[in-house]
């Protein structure tokens, strides 16, 4: 391309500046080819999950097409944030109790990784770290305070994982992405369980196309989780109209207690 550029610039001087700009643009385009050239697409079937009274989690399927010869890793995560958790430790050598607070920085509340094969076989460590793909990468990305050594950090990150996996907020699976070949394109599909423990908020689904240990393309989709109807009204009221909410809670409880008392009297309880 530079040869073309040179030929043209020698012919028309006034066009030189424009062409220089174009050439810079082309070079930039080539540099970022990994996002522009391939035809990866991603679509989540549920981009909007409504939480109503009967909500007990959901399923989210992610599908799209990718270049043949690439393998996929799908990451579903909430934006990174911080979390403070109580830490249990031994007091006096025998008693377990809360001994302090551990702060976790740069950790998403929900983090779910689905890879075509084992992560380490697909992606080298630098790439894992660059895109924060996989628990080991997340552990290097996260900051924990207070910890005194790398060993201690690793230990507490493991505890953090256990805590998150227990409430289904962190998952990691491999080999669950279905691939089908059609018209020279590769279609993929995965069905994931959406945990009811995931609070309302915006979640990002990122699909990474991987080749030769590197990410060559990526595509994004969003999942928005929102409370709806009476659930939304009650949750909103508990926060923004707390006094009235408290008052209603108490009056309802008093009413229910009296009501049941009256029913039992009519039912002919003993004297």
């Amino acid at each position: 391309m530079k040869t073309v550029n040179r030929e043209q610039s020698s012919m028309i001087r006034s066009g030189q500046r424009i062409l220089t700009l174009i050439s810079i643009f082309i070079i930039l385009l080539i540099a970022s080819a990994e996002t522009a050239s391939a035809k990866l697409t991603a679509r989540a079937n549920h981009d909007h999950i409504n939480i109503d009274f009967f909500y007990h989690g959901s399923t989210v399927s992610v599908s799209g097409v990718t270049d043949p010869g690439t393998e996929l890793i799908i990451k579903i995560a909430s934006p990174e944030g911080h979390e403070a958790l109580k830490e249990k430790g031994k007091v006096g050598g025998i008693l377990w109790m809360n001994v302090g607070t551990k702060k976790f920085e740069n950790v998403p509340n929900l983090y779910s990784i689905h890879s075509a094969r084992k992560l380490d076989e697909m992606l080298n460590r630098e790439e894992q770290d660059r895109y924060v793909i996989g628990y080991p990468a997340l552990s290097r990305h996260a900051e924990i305070d207070p910890v005194t050594s790398a060993d201690e950090k690793a230990k507490w990150f493991d505890e953090f994982l256990k805590y998150k996996e227990r409430s289904n907020l962190y998952t990691a699976t491999d080999g669950k992405i279905e691939m089908t070949e059609k018209d020279g394109e590769q279609a993929y599909y995965i069905l994931t369980q959406w945990p009811y423990q995931a609070p309302p908020g915006d979640y990002i689904v990122t699909v990474y196309a991987v080749k030769d240990g590197k990410v060559v393309d990526r595509a994004e989709s969003r999942v928005q989780v929102e409370q709806a109807g009476l659930v939304k009204t009650l949750a909103g009221m508990a926060k923004s109209n707390a006094a009235l909410y408290g008052f209603i809670s108490i009056v309802s409880a008093l009413g229910a207690g009296f009501g049941v008392g009256l029913v039992f009297r009519k039912g002919g309880g003993a004297h």
Binding site: A84, L85, K86, E87, K88, G89, I94, L95, W96, M97, N98, T101, K102, W156, E159, F160, K162, Y163, R166
Partner: peptide, 13 residues
């Protein structure tokens, strides 16, 4: 609860 090792060492604040 106080003497047996808990299954989770981190709990909600």
């Amino acid at each position: 609860d106080l003497t047996l090792t808990p299954s989770l060492l981190l709990t909600q604040a």
